[in-house]
């Protein structure tokens, strides 16, 4: 038997020579960019026609976006939104991961709490917006609570399935070598659960930012939500659209970071 280390080269196409982009990819890039430019161009053209007050020219929005950045308004608001998000997310992680580990591994907790967790997971959190203020007030507390609820059950469910996903043969291997209780958890079950837990944490980031923005729009106007609502109430459409685009880009950047962190955390498993 020779030492055949697996190289992850595709079996069909050797990558010895850095091949030029395949034709479909060239076409793909062309179409992708054309599509983007086409949409923006149509937007600009339609906006300058002035047919609908809801659609200003694209470059007005770009200008408002730039204005929002350099005046610092968007950035200050983003800091507030991020604070809400981070607090809510931290609470959700602090509750969700330990509860998930417990429910995933204890027969009692599974019997009693798993149906409740699945029920809560299926419940639209926005239902509680009208009453959440009664318990937490409408300020930061309320928004943080809503954010936490928005991502708590996603994290919990993912952790539960992570613990369950530990292959039975690995557990048996551990038992066969005398690993009991604590050692079985620290040595086998938790590391095996890690990838799915991390997936849950990443999805949780996306949910947390959605929860924070929803809370700022629907529960009490604040931060980025307030910027959007204020621009909307003044019918300052370019600024409204600029703020919306800013919020969506912020979400994208955060998810991108979360994905990178996920890759790093589970890098040693990818061979």
């Amino acid at each position: 038997m020779t030492a055949q280390l697996s190289t992850s080269a595709s079996p069909v196409v050797g990558r010895a020579v850095r091949a030029p982009l395949p034709p479909w990819k060239v076409w793909g890039w062309t179409v992708r960019i054309t599509l983007l430019l086409g949409v923006l161009g149509a937007w600009q053209w339609y906006g300058t026609q002035g047919e609908s007050f809801a659609i200003p020219p694209f470059f007005d929005v770009v200008e408002a976006f730039w204005e929002g950045i350099v005046s610092g308004e968007f950035l200050v608001a983003a800091a507030g939104t991020l604070l809400t998000m981070v607090l809510g997310y931290a609470i959700a992680v602090a509750i969700g991961v330990p509860m998930g580990l417990w429910i995933g591994s204890s027969r009692f907790a599974r019997n009693v709490f798993e149906p409740l967790v699945h029920a809560a997971y299926a419940t639209p959190v926005s239902l509680f917006i009208p009453v959440i203020g009664i318990y937490t007030g409408l300020d930061l507390n309320g928004r943080v609570t809503l954010t936490a609820l928005w991502c708590l059950f996603e994290i919990m469910v993912s952790t539960i399935s992570g613990v369950r996903s530990t292959p039975v043969p690995l557990i048996e291997m551990g038992r066969a070598y005398g690993a009991g209780g604590a050692k079985l958890y620290s040595g086998v079950i938790l590391p095996a659960a890690l990838p799915l837990v991390v997936v849950g944490l990443r999805i949780g980031v996306g949910r947390a930012i959605r929860g924070a923005v929803t809370a700022e729009l629907l529960l009490s106007a604040a931060n980025l939500g307030e910027v959007i609502l204020f621009a909307g109430s003044l019918f300052d459409i370019p600024k409204l659209l600029a703020a919306i685009i800013f919020v969506m880009l912020l979400g994208l950047v955060l998810m991108r970071i979360a994905t990178l962190v996920e890759r790093r955390a589970t890098r040693h498993l990818q061979h």
């Binding site: 959007i228 919020v247 979400g251 998810m255």
Partner: peptide, 18 residues
């Protein structure tokens, strides 16, 4: 994918205008 992960709730004030 971009729309999938981002916060669509922010679009609400714009959808009302449309």
């Amino acid at each position: 994918n971009a729309f999938f992960v981002t916060s669509l709730a922010a679009l609400l004030p714009f959808i009302i205008l449309l």
